[in-house]
Write a protein that binds this DNA or RNA. Structure first.
Lengths: 343, 343
DNA sequence: GTTAGCACTCGCAAAAGGCGAGTGCTAAGC
DNA sequence: GCTTAGCACTCGCCTTTTGCGAGTGCTAAC
């Protein structure tokens, strides 16, 4: 990316402007900088530099008689080259560590809690794309008769429940029969990684079933299809209110746009999903999603056994505490990876 | 309650004022009423009546030179005695009916969907308190080994999955052993209503287990405790953004208060939980919850086998379309009751 | 290249003014 | 005695005006 294309003094001023704006949410003027940051430069000099930075597209002025704020390009440069690394405080580390120390919960609530902690630590809305099935190991399938014609199918992986679906049957079946099917499926599949599930394996099972009992044909088909093409990963959200603490959302309309995005899983999914490794920062218009074009999104993928399985992240105004959030999101993804890998 | 304590003309005027204010969100004046509603009364007469209604506490003036709006007492009278019944439109009926016609989903997503439809039909945020365990029938328990020391416990009722928990074991156990325990528990419990679960039954099972295999003692204890004291019912939410369409929430602070409430399950639980039968309307300060004191809450309980198991409802400004929402919430609860009872 | 000085811009907040919807009161009418 | 026309009055709100101040760009001197 674009780095080291500005001379050191311009970089310094861009950094100071960005830092100050992130903190204050007010356009920052040359006087403020001179007074507050002791750079050994007069306001006039700073003004000249700022004019250059504006010409280069790194800063902009909301209106003529105001100070400067970073443009998207300015933020991008800041994030890529200027931002000072900010380590997590002891408290923050402690919160995350102690959270992951307690292991006796099921997957769903672990993820829900994770995203809650993420929003508490960053003070921004946070999101999470739940883990994919692929690298998991099949643990168990169970068919449970709910009524004469309804069948509950449970699929459990080494990480916990992944899928549960009710299937309507045409012909009634007894729990005993279901147990036999469950037993056979488990015998075939237990301990296998999902990644290995191939159509051939399913066909083999189906044929075996057919020989065994014809009436299960349809049910088994459905189950196998469920296993092959499972629903989208669940999306977890927390701390949406945090966004209201920032002046860029004081107008209800702005907030509403974002809130609408939050209520639509499909769009969130598109926003989050990427198999790119490591931390990802999308600033403003870099986001495809229109409602998020005045926002920045910081995400990191988490892994199980070296393979990316999900994403956690934080969304906020482009004027976001990048340094801090990057640290938290990164560390969180790391810990979550460790945690899930241990399961 | 207070009904028929106003003469018919005062009632008429209170009704007209309330209807108009609900629609327009603007204080309504005597001229407007005379012009718009053709009551055969001059503005002056209406003014006199309104002055009386204000003295009686049914109306109030936001400020001297404005029209009148209903007070909480006014809304209460309106709701109890004046509100005209508003039947659901054919479309609305169709939406709900066709929704409940499709049965092949699992409980959790049914409830999630229900609350979504509720908010779409009413255009207010809607809430739902998930069903309690009590009137359900135990269908299945399954112990699944996730790793050497982690055990997934699943409890399934006739309505679908209800509980799944990970339990840490001290000593490793094999899946085969777990299957045996599952089998025994199921033999004892399948088909029993949860309401019949008594400590004595559990003790009996535990004793039998003890004789069978000592190392399961602790696991079984945990499972039984889970069954006895299960977590709070889940709370479902949808359509929070709808509240932003109403001018009473145009100030972010007002909205934030409500949003904070929505993110705290504990408070929502207190707000919703009641075993009172039928429809319930809480207007403004009648709500205990402070954040909801400028709101009204309309809820109805749903039942399985004649026993109340959960609550669904809608929250909105006190200036709410009571008649319509009451119909929707009521019908929805009814259909949901039917649906769940059929399972 | 840096900086002091200065005229200029312009958003914003407070003050001023005018409008209009709505009221209460009074007195006349049915 | 209830109803209503008439009228003076109130007061929130919208618009306009005004003044302030933060900030700028330019110029000229260092």
């Amino acid at each position: 990316m674009s780095r080291r294309e500005l001379d050191p003094r311009k970089e310094l001023i861009l950094k100071v402007v960005t830092d100050d704006y992130i903190e204050s949410a007010e356009p920052v003027g040359s006087r403020t900088i001179a007074r507050k940051y002791n750079l050994g430069l007069s306001p006039a000099t700073i003004r000249n530099e700022m004019a250059d930075l504006e010409e280069g597209g790194y800063l902009k002025q909301p209106h003529v008689s105001a100070g400067r704020i970073p443009s998207h390009q300015g933020y991008r440069y800041y994030v890529d080259a200027l931002m000072s690394q900010q380590d997590l405080t002891e408290e923050e580390l402690a919160v995350i560590r102690s959270y992951f120390a307690d292991r006796s919960r099921e997957l769903d609530s672990i993820l829900q809690q994770t995203v809650k902690i993420l929003s508490q630590l960053t003070r921004y809305p946070s999101l999470m794309l739940g883990p994919t099935l692929k690298p998991s190991i099949f643990k168990h399938v169970q068919l449970i008769s709910l009524s004469a014609h309804d069948l509950l199918v449970l699929i459990v992986t080494d990480m916990g429940i992944i899928e549960n679906k009710v299937i309507a049957l045409e012909a009634p079946v007894s729990q005993g029969d279901l147990d036999r099917v469950s037993y056979l499926l488990n015998k075939k599949l237990r301990g296998q990684p999902f990644a290995k599930f191939k159509s051939s394996l399913f066909r083999e099972i189906r044929d075996e079933m057919k020989a065994d009992n014809g009436i299960f044909q349809k049910a088994v088909d459905l189950i196998l299809k469920t296993m092959e093409t499972r629903n989208k990963e669940r999306i977890y959200l927390d701390g949406i209110i945090n966004i209201l603490d920032h002046p860029e959302f004081k107008e209800v309309e702005k907030f509403k746009l974002l809130m609408e995005l939050m209520e639509e899983e499909e769009r969130l999914y598109r926003l989050l999903s990427t198999r790119q490794q490591g931390i990802r920062i999308s600033i403003g218009e870099e986001n495809q999603e229109e409602a998020a074009q005045e926002c920045s999104l910081i995400t990191a993928n988490y892994e199980v056994g070296g393979q990316v399985v999900g994403t956690n992240g934080v969304i906020g105004p482009t004027r976001m505490e990048y340094a801090h959030v990057v640290s938290v999101v990164d560390f969180m993804a790391q810990k979550l990876s460790e945690f899930l890998s241990k399961l």
